[in-house]
Computed example of a mutant assay.
Amino acid sequence: MDMENIQYATTRGLRDEDVEELLSTHHVGVLSLADGGDAYAVPVDYHYDGDQFYVRLTDDGESDKLEFLAATERPEFLVYGHGGDYESWSILARGDLHEVDPDEHGIDAATVNDWFGPVRIFDESVSAVEIRIFELEVASLVGRATIG
C-alpha cells in the first residue's frame, strides 16, 4: 500500500460549550454495551439538558439490549454528525447507566414525547412495549471534530 498518498483529516478537541450545544440539539445516539466478548450497539433516543442525560429504551419482554445492559460494566454512548465528506464531529460519553422511576423524576407521557419523540415500534404491538427511562451518570465526556 502506498502510504504517502493516503488522505488524512486533522481533528481537534471540542470546547465544553460546543459539546453542550451539540448534545442539547441532537437526540439520537448509539448505546454501546458488552457481555464478555460479545458487543451490542443500538441507536436510541436521548435527552440532555446540561445536567441530566437520559436514555429511553423499550422492553417487549424479549429485549437483547436490556440483557446486554445488565451484563455491561461500563456502557458508552456515542453522538455524532457530519457536514460533508471531510467535516465531522463526535462525542463519547462514559458512565453508569441506571433505570429511574419516571414518577419520582417528574417524567410523564408529555415529557417523554417532548424529550424523545415518537417511540419506534418494529414487530411488537404497542400494548406489549414498556417505556423505560435510564439516566447516564457521565464520568467522562470527550468531543472531537475535524478542522476544516
Rank of each mutant, 00 (worst) to 15 (best):
D103R: 07
G81N: 07
P43S: 01
A109C: 00
A70E: 15
Y86S: 15
A145R: 09
G83R: 09
D64F: 08
I107G: 03
Y40F: 14
E67S: 10
A34R: 09
E20S: 08
T11Y: 03
D35E: 11
S88L: 11
K65N: 11
H27G: 11
E21I: 08
T25C: 07
D103I: 02
S140C: 04
L141W: 11
V126N: 10
D60T: 09
H98L: 10
A128E: 15
K65I: 03
I107Q: 02
T72M: 07
A145H: 03
I91V: 13
A128F: 01
L136V: 07
Y46L: 04
A41E: 04
D2Q: 10
I147G: 09
G37L: 13
L141F: 02
H82L: 09
V100G: 09
V42N: 04
F116W: 10
E87L: 13
I147Y: 11
V55G: 04
A145T: 06
Q52I: 05
V119E: 08
T58N: 00
S32D: 05
L78K: 06
V28N: 10
M1L: 14
D96H: 07
L92T: 13
L33Q: 00
M1F: 05
D103E: 14
A109M: 04
I133N: 00
T111W: 05
L33D: 03
G81L: 09
G61L: 02
S125Q: 12
T111V: 15
E137L: 00
Q7M: 09
A41S: 14
A34S: 13
L23P: 02
A41I: 01
D96E: 13
G95T: 03
Y86H: 14
I133R: 00
R144N: 06
D16W: 00
S88C: 07
L22Y: 02
T11R: 13
V44L: 11
D101Q: 07
S63D: 01
H82Y: 08
A71R: 12
S32Q: 04
G29N: 03
S90W: 05
Q7T: 14
V119A: 10
P118K: 15
Y80V: 03
V119W: 06
Y48M: 08
I131R: 02
E62Q: 12
I107H: 05
S63G: 02
A110F: 03
K65E: 05
H98Y: 09
V100P: 01
V142W: 07
T146Y: 01
E21D: 13
